[in-house]
């Protein structure tokens, strides 16, 4: 197991290094931040000073060398926009996103598994048809559109919920509901498909021959076998939210890592972009590890 984690960490580290190099150089292609942060009528002197301050005067390769050197000392650079350490800014945003992701994915997982399993038990039945149809709609809907429609109905017309921001528990309801829909549709479909396979398997036949009633057949014999592909998709979807639910966070003015990322990109706040990428990468690495752990727990045939 330790060797397995080591190997995985190695592969992820290689990818991460490649990613950092790529992002460092490519992000500079978007232009010079000086024009963005200084007024249009700023003097050349002011410009030079700004550039000097943020180390933008040196050749790119020198800047990169300095960045790597700082990284080795756990210095992730300074946010130009907020004039604070970039990592501090990113971790703050990440806390919001992580909370959002955990709550959403927990709800999605429970709902999708229960409903998907029940749908798979009577394939082609009324319940199956209804859930299949709604899950398809859920998987097909663009989240920004749902967010907008949600705001119009619940915030503007009915005035039940706030339109954006954070603060009270009511602020969480719309973002979570919007984020819930697509993963729910996708995971429900995978649960259903995987459950159909499991329920038509030979060991379920054995269970029936043993006289096991339907409910334990679904939730004890079928579900645990059907979970492996489901977990993979749960992981993919969770990674999607962790990487930043950009659209939803932007619309609801939610200070998560996704909104931070798009702002940083548009404002050429390079240190924040890189720090955000690293935090996401580490979070996703840990999550993948948890998923592999879950595999091994669910299926005794898997050993690392």
């Amino acid at each position: 197991m330790k060797r397995f984690i080591g190997k995985r960490a190695m592969a992820s580290a290689i990818s991460l290094v490649g990613l950092i190099v790529l992002v460092f150089f490519l992000s500079r292609l978007t232009g010079d931040p000086t024009d963005l942060y200084l007024p249009i009528d700023a003097t050349q002197e002011m410009r030079d000073k700004f550039r000097e301050l943020h180390g933008l005067n040196d050749p790119l390769i020198v800047q990169f060398g300095r960045y790597v050197w700082d990284l080795l000392h756990f210095d992730f650079g300074e946010s130009i926009r907020q004039a604070r350490p970039a990592m501090e800014v990113v971790l703050e945003g990440f806390r919001w996103t992580l909370t959002l992701a955990v709550i959403t994915m927990t709800l999605v997982t429970v709902a999708a598994i229960v409903i998907g399993s029940l749908a798979a038990f009577k394939v082609g039945g009324v319940f199956d048809r209804i859930t299949s149809f709604f899950s398809l709609i859920g998987a097909s809907a663009p989240d920004f559109w749902i967010a907008i429609v949600g705001i119009v109905i619940f915030a503007v017309q009915l005035r039940w919920l706030p339109t954006s921001g954070t603060g009270t528990i009511w602020h969480w309801i719309l973002p979570i509901s919007v984020l819930f829909i697509r993963p729910f549709g996708l995971i429900l479909q995978v649960v259903r498909g995987s459950m159909i396979t499991a329920l038509s398997s030979a060991y379920v036949k054995t269970a029936k021959a043993k006289g096991v009633p339907p409910r334990p057949i679904i939730f004890v014999h079928g579900l645990r076998n059907a979970m492996l592909p489901v977990i993979t998709v749960i992981g993919d979807q969770a990674a999607g939210i962790l990487n930043g639910a950009v659209v939803v966070e932007t619309i609801f003015g939610f200070p998560g890592i996704g909104k931070l990322m798009i702002d940083a990109i548009l404002q050429r706040d390079f240190a924040v972009i890189l720090a955000a990428i690293m935090v996401s990468a580490v979070a996703i690495f840990i999550m993948n590890l948890l998923i592999d752990l879950a595999y091994a727990m669910l299926d005794p045939r898997i050993r690392y």
Partner: peptide
């Protein structure tokens, strides 16, 4: 590995670039 890098490269950044 290349696939991994592409997968974790933020598509928003790519779009902005």
């Amino acid at each position: 590995r290349l696939g991994d890098v592409i997968m974790s490269f933020p598509s928003l950044l790519l779009a902005v670039i």
